[in-house]
């Protein structure tokens, strides 16, 4: 953390902790409903929100140097590359007809 980073008040950590607990409960609640095609996107959205809170507050990225932010954002970009190019396969498999199918 940079030398001039402000000290994060304990209340922030407590609030984030509570938020994470609420979101965990939300994960459970939404799993009891059937949203059809939206099941996975909803679950992923909650999970991403939780991960973001951990990264931004618990890992202190919000108060860190621009280089650290670049590193974190790059990590997400690489995750997107992995998902994106993998989906490039899965989403286009049905585009071509297969004999006998």
């Amino acid at each position: 953390m940079s030398q001039h980073a402000p000290v994060t008040p304990v209340s922030t950590y407590v609030n984030i902790f509570v938020a994470l607990l609420v979101l965990t409960g939300l994960t459970y609640v939404v799993a009891t409903f059937d949203f059809g095609l939206l099941n996975t996107p909803i679950a992923l959205a909650v999970a991403i929100l939780k991960a973001a809170l951990v990264i931004v507050y618990f890992m202190g990225v919000r108060y860190n140097t621009p280089l650290t932010k670049v590193v974190v954002i790059s990590g997400f970009c690489w995750l997107l590359i992995m998902f994106g190019l993998t989906l490039n396969d899965y989403l286009t498999r049905a585009w071509i007809g297969v004999a006998g199918r």
Binding site: I81, L85, N88, D89, T92, R93, I96
Partner: peptide, 21 residues
Amino acid sequence: FLVWGHHLFVSSQSIYAGLVF
């Protein structure tokens, strides 16, 4: 990091993904 699919050309990967890779 963008080329790994060339190991999957004959692994039932989509032909379109094959072209991109």
